[in-house]
């Protein structure tokens, strides 16, 4: 159509359709309001323009009108809020059985590691129609992972994990941007997300993953580092059993309960004494400075792989807008 004049970004994820409809709703409301205001100003300006022999009629105001034009917009805005909140809630609740990819951002590149093993730089290959969750951290400053075609964006912070998920719906190659200013080559911190049909993805995966899956590498590392001398598969070990721990609540020695998510596991590897599991002594050595971010991701992937596979009731990612045709048909 217009090669040089794109008007609408490609919509290539399940979020994108919902977001586009929300955006269209907001745009319609805004255009109607703007046109109304412009038109009323124009009409008043012309109709009541200054003429000899005509005086202005003084009007004090109207309580009814004031209340009306306060409440009515508020009602419409609460609709916007609700629509946006539902989408945001979905975006922040990754389905449990999604494929996971670890992302490490640094000035100025994206390093990605698939659970199955392949590593990429500034490139991300994902299968179509599959939930993908990104678990992201930064080595230096704040970055932001942004794929316009998926309508997803999340800041990537140092010292902490943030997550983002999407389900690509359309094969193709899309922009990956860093959206948070991160220094000199901020605008060079860009890459591509390639969405592939399942078959192609499998083929790519086997060709790109000679070294085994991330969890497998993690297992090797787990043994190399000697983690398995304490973390046994039965309760005899000096450390807690790790099987099935991921994603579940953990009772701590000080009475608190935390969820064993990526951040908790990361902290437990780097700063074991911070949150010691109830019934265990804080004897685990710290691995700060001894394992790098990528190895951490491998270890976490391994610990996650110890969970029994999810049984059905995963959070569905279906967007309410899913039944409507994508606006990219425009």
């Amino acid at each position: 159509m217009f090669d040089n004049l794109p008007l609408w970004p490609t919509a290539a994820s399940s979020h994108a359709r919902y977001e586009d409809w929300l955006f269209i709703f907001l745009t319609v409301v805004s255009v109607v309001m703007t046109v109304l205001i412009f038109a009323v100003i124009a009409v008043f300006a012309m109709k009541y323009r200054r003429r000899h022999g005509r005086e202005a009629t003084q009007i004090e105001g109207s309580l009814l009108l004031e209340i009306g034009w306060s409440i009515a917009p508020l009602g419409i805005m609460m609709l916007m809020f609700a629509g946006g909140a539902v989408l945001y809630f979905i975006m922040r609740s990754p389905p449990r059985d999604s494929a996971q990819v670890y992302v490490v951002a640094k000035q100025w590149m994206w390093k990605l590691q698939h659970m199955e093993g392949p590593r990429e730089i500034n490139q991300l290959h994902v299968p179509v129609d599959r939930d993908v969750e990104l678990i992201m951290t930064s080595q230096d400053v704040i970055h932001s992972f942004y794929v316009p075609a998926f309508r997803v964006k999340q800041d990537v912070l140092p010292g902490r994990y943030t997550t983002l998920w999407f389900r690509a719906t359309k094969p193709g190659t899309y922009h990956l941007f860093c959206a948070q200013f991160c220094g000199t080559m901020h605008s060079g911190m860009i890459g591509e997300v390639t969405v592939m049909e399942s078959k192609d993805y499998q083929a790519w995966m086997t060709s790109a993953a000679p070294s085994g899956s991330l969890a497998q590498t993690g297992m090797t590392l787990f043994q190399q580092l000697g983690c398995n001398t304490c973390h046994l598969n039965d309760v005899q070990g000096r450390g807690p059993v790790l099987k099935g721990v991921y994603g579940n609540p953990v009772q701590l020695g000080d009475g608190r309960t935390v969820t064993a998510d990526e951040n908790y596991i990361r902290e437990s590897i780097l700063v074991p004494a911070a949150k010691v599991v109830s019934g265990f002594r804080p004897i685990m050595p710290s691995w700060q400075g001894q394992v790098n971010e990528e190895q951490l991701n491998e270890l976490i992937a391994y610990i996650k792989s110890l969970n029994p596979p999810p049984t059905g009731e995963a959070v569905t990612a279906g967007a309410p807008g899913g039944t409507t045709p994508p606006p990219s048909a425009k």
Binding site: H15, Y18, E19, L22, F23, L26, V29, S30, M33, T34, I37, F38, I41, M77, M80, F81, G83, G84, A85, V86, L87, Y88, M91, S144, Y146, P148, R151, V152, K153, Q154, A179, Q180
Partner: peptide
């Protein structure tokens, strides 16, 4: 002013709407 402020204010609603802000934030 009224016209431009209206547009500016209404587009502020896009940014306050959570799901939309995720896409347009920092753009």
């Amino acid at each position: 002013f009224i016209g431009l402020f209206t547009i500016g204010g209404l587009t502020g609603l896009f940014l306050a709407t959570l799901g939309v802000d995720v896409h347009v934030h920092d753009t």
